[in-house]
Design a protein around this nucleic acid. Structure first.
Lengths: 121, 121
DNA sequence: ATAACGTGAAACCAAAAGGTTTCACATGCC
DNA sequence: GGCATGTGAAACCTTTTGGTTTCACGTTAT
């Protein structure tokens, strides 16, 4: 099992607006809702207690993260899930897959025993 | 392919500190570094331009997210990657797997064509 | 013992986040 | 035309975030 490539910095820059968008529970819920079906701004906002402008701001951040697309329909603006960047985030996380099974046990063991008294410099 | 279960709210609560921890590029870099090998606070801080207390705060947030564990070794505190919650975040994202291939095309098509003029209420 | 090292923790600060209310404007329906 | 609806956007407020400097304390090495 070859070591997974370390994510590079510029790749991380690209992912920053994605992880930022995912950091808020309201935005995550919006994503789940839009996964079921596209919805206008008013429809999305109606599912939350907060004001519509607050929801609009969340939608803007989701758009900055490239997680949703917006299509005008008459006087409405329909928001659609755009899962591509979710996939990118998922792939970033998959970098750690190797450690879930492979290295985790080793590292844990290392710290809890030998590592604790070796490594003098 | 059965529809993936919708993530529940309390599950999302549990994931909040994880996504919060992942939202900062410094913290993501720390995770990558610790994936290579455990390190003391001083060692981690030495890799960044910012002050040590700033790094300590980031480590605290990573700990709150359950993404790292800390083991004292003499006067040092060794930080170790704890990937379990990364896996949880990864699984949350995998909820959208279905849409990457299955529904995406449909939704896109729906919005761009028929959806645009149907759905009167 | 004393000096150096690693850490903890407080006080402080500027900027960003997340929310509100308010008002203007465009579109669709009667 | 006129009114209701959907949206955009500004101004404002409070809390959180991410950083700093400073100092105290425990541990290790000489």
């Amino acid at each position: 099992m070859p070591a997974a490539a370390t994510p590079r910095k510029d790749e991380d820059d690209r992912l920053q607006p994605v992880f930022r968008a995912l950091a808020d529970p309201t935005r995550r819920r919006i994503l789940r809702d839009l996964a079921r079906e596209p919805a206008s701004i008013a429809e999305v906002a109606s599912r939350f207690e907060m004001s519509r402008p607050a929801v609009v701001k969340h939608l803007a951040i989701l758009r900055e993260g490239g997680l949703i697309a917006v299509a005008p329909r008459g006087r409405e603006r329909i928001n659609v899930l755009k899962p591509d960047n979710l996939k990118s985030a998922s792939q970033w996380l998959s970098f750690f897959d190797a450690f879930w099974d492979d290295k985790l046990a080793k590292l844990k063991h290392a710290v809890e025993t030998d590592y604790a008294r070796s490594k003098k410099r």
